[in-house]
């Protein structure tokens, strides 16, 4: 009888202790999954869903802490493991959702960036057509502004490189708007001095009789 009891009791005790082993490795995996989601941009692009994922992880940690607080024989980490498994399963879905939203935002930013580049190029082309003779005063004041627009395109690219697509899009739109306004102003100024077609050669022909003016 004693032998039977011992034979039955030892495995039972082992089972009890085995059920009481904290799933620390599973916790690490779940934490890593949440971190991966954060690094993928989930907190920025799908903030509420990311908060839910964090809530699930926190629940799992709370459950783990509750079980750890019990006497070893009474610990049951089954629920903890289920919660951690749910977190690990949910994180990839969140990463996928983030990637979709990021891709859509990136497309919009790329489109805005290209539009801005085209507008800046057009503005610079108009400024380049500005006369160099007596009439160059018409666009002299805005020449520096055209340069500033070109420099601002670099800031748009920097935002794109940092994957801050919403900021890139806002900057690109601002650059495009200003470039269009500048082009309009240059066209108006050139029209007053005789049209955009006058260009450098026109001024030189006009001033052929007189040398370059000091001012």
């Amino acid at each position: 009888m004693k032998l039977i009891m011992t034979t039955l009791l030892i495995p039972a005790l082992c089972l009890a202790v085995g059920c009481g082993q904290a799933p620390n490795d599973k916790l690490s995996e779940a934490e890593k999954a949440v971190m991966n989601a954060k690094l993928a941009g989930a907190q920025a692009y799908v903030a509420e869903d990311y908060a839910k994922l964090e809530g699930m992880l926190n629940n799992a940690k709370t459950e783990l802490a509750d079980q750890n607080g019990k006497f070893a024989l009474f610990r049951d980490y089954g629920k903890t493991e289920q919660l951690l498994a749910a977190v690990k399963a949910e994180a990839p879905k969140l990463i996928e959702e983030t990637a979709k939203k990021k891709a859509a935002t990136k497309d919009a930013a790329l489109s805005a960036h290209q539009a801005a580049k085209d507008a800046v190029k057009a503005a610079q082309a108009l400024v380049a057509k500005a006369p160099v003779g007596k009439d160059r005063a018409a666009v002299e004041a805005i020449r520096n502004e055209a340069k500033a627009l070109k420099a601002s395109l670099n800031e748009v690219q920097m935002a794109m490189d940092m994957e801050d697509y919403l900021t890139a899009q806002a900057k690109a739109k601002a650059v495009q708007d200003k470039s269009l306004a500048l082009s309009s102003e240059v066209r108006g100024a050139l029209a007053k001095v005789g049209g955009a077609g006058t260009g450098k050669s026109g001024s030189q022909a006009q001033g052929a009789k007189s040398p370059k003016k000091k001012k």
Partner: peptide
């Protein structure tokens, strides 16, 4: 001619 400024 409507020019708003000169070279000086």
């Amino acid at each position: 001619r409507g020019l708003s400024q000169t070279l000086g």
